[in-house]
Structure formats: C-alpha cells, structure tokens
Design a binder for these strands. Structure first.
Lengths: 143, 143
DNA sequence: TAATATCACTTGCTTAAAGCAAGTGATATT
DNA sequence: AATATCACTTGCTTTAAGCAAGTGATATTA
C-alpha cells in the first residue's frame, strides 16, 4: 500500500500544512525534475537517478495533481505519454527549493557545479524568474 | 524501531541531500518550535501541539545534533533539563522555513495571523535577522 | 529523609508507508 | 500480427511512524 493523501491538518500552522503536502523524501525531487531539469513524464522522473519506486512516484504524481501543484495532459503526438507541468502554485515553490539548494550547498558536500551555485546565490530572483518564464511562455503558446 | 540516520547520499544533488536531512514530517517543526516559538526543551517540543511521538522526537533531536544543526546543554539551574539552541547551520535554515510558510499561507487555509504574515512577506530578511539576533546575542551573553 | 513528581528519554509492540519485483492494459512501432 | 513502450497497479517485504508503558536521573514535598 502506498498512501499519501494530505491528512486532516493537525495544526493550522502554515509550516505544518506545507510539510503535510511536501514533507517527505520524494515530492520536491519530482518538482525539481519538472522545473529545473525540464523533465515532464513519468518515465523521465523514474529514471532521474534518485531511485524512486514506481508506486511511490505514481502516488506522488496523483497527490500533486490533487493539490493543484502540477497538471498532466496526454501528448498529442504519442497518446501513451502524459506530460506534466507545474501550475502557478507549483512554480511558487521555486523559492523554497532554491533556499534548500543554497543551504545544502553551503553545508554539505554536493555535486552542484560551483558557477551555477554562485549564480543561484547572487541572483535568486533572476534565476527563479527564468524558470518561471519557461513555463508561462509555453502556456501562451497553447493559449 | 525509529531510525533516521542520514543515509549514504543517493545522488549528489543538493536538494536531495537537504531532503535526506529534513525531508520528513517532523524535523522542521522542531526547528520552528526552537527558532520561532522559542521553545528549547524536549518537553516543550513534545507539548507543542503537533502530536509528535516521544521516540520520534528523541530520534530527531539526536539526528539534528549529529548534523550540527542544534546543540544541547544541561541547564545549570535544573540538571534534569537539557536546553537546545540552533547553531549557525540551523539558523541558516530560516530562509527555507520562511519561504515554506509564505507559500502555505498563500495557497492553504492557515491559522497564521494576517499581520504577521504580511510582515513576513514584506520584510523576509528583517524578520530572519531578528530571529537570528535573538540567538547570536544570547551566545555573546555566555562569552 | 523518605515518598512523590518531573524530566528526558528507551523499550516493545502495532500500524502505516516505503521499497521491490512482477504484471496489466493501452498505444505505438516493426 | 508480433513486439515494444508507456504509465501505471498489485502483492509482498522491509522500514519507519505511532502509541503506551517503563526507566533512571534529578528535584520537590511531607
């Protein structure tokens, strides 16, 4: 059994609610693949190298859609494939992820290229806006 | 059994490493109690209203000390009590927590007072510096 | 100073979630 | 028509979370 439904809120504390949604080992890694690596399919997430289990991945994708953080739609060129993309609510998690990345890079041994980290530290908002634009531009293209 | 030892890194990705450390339901709530609510003891964390289990709390406190995110020392006035405080590494998680709080407040129903949230949104760094000072001043007091 | 209370845990057990391998049904390719 | 790929699901094992009770050290009270 795999179940990650966001439960009845234990407390109304915003941090607690946030952790009910993405306070686990995998949820933010899927969003990282989606927003930073520009992966968009189940298969790409699965093969991203972190080793997530198939049932957990399916479960998290379902939960992220229920929460309105991502949306999925079938590819027109290949109907087997579902392409996921972040919503506004999902894109607004970028600052959270960026701060986590900066913290980890400062205190732990990471494989992150130094110049990318420098860019990230020195221009958080510019970096975030770039990522954001990639998805909002794409949105227009469909409009 | 309760075991949260930070495992062998699955990937060198900074986000992945960060999640190995605090990617769970409880770790950041303890740090919230410590830094925002100014709780400092096991008992206070336990009674903070989120319903953490005693073994999980003990486990996370141990892990946070091993990671150098908090330090604990016995109270001089009552030798039963251990007072925990954040290290620099712990204080540097404030931006992560603040962004999570802002996100949750924007998209979920929270019990956070509107004026505190407004303050937080409009002056993230000022807010963070205030919290930070409370602990670095206290440090000086000990010499 | 003996008895009781409090503090920070630990232990043992149950329940829920993560991890793993294999399978399924739909669509696509050969 | 046969095989491959895609996005999952199912069933089982392992690990971690949840819960109640207990422990040892220190502190307070009668």
């Amino acid at each position: 059994m795999v179940k990650k439904d966001v439960p009845e809120h234990r407390s109304g504390c915003p941090l607690s609610i946030a952790l009910e949604i993405f306070g686990d080992r995998w949820t933010l890694l899927i969003l990282r693949d989606l927003m930073f690596k520009q992966y968009s399919t189940y298969k790409e997430f699965l093969e991203s190298g972190e080793g997530i289990a198939t049932n957990v991945l399916a479960d998290r994708i379902r939960m992220l859609q229920e929460q309105g953080i991502i949306v999925g739609e079938r590819s027109t060129s290949d109907a087997r494939i579902i392409c996921y993309r972040p919503t506004q609510k999902g894109l607004d998690l970028l600052p959270v992820m960026v701060e986590m990345i900066i913290w980890a890079d400062q205190y732990e041994e990471t494989a992150a290229p130094a110049r990318i980290m420098r860019r990230l530290r020195e221009d958080r908002t510019g970096f975030i806006d770039e990522v954001r634009k990639r998805f909002t531009e794409a949105e227009k293209g469909k409009g």
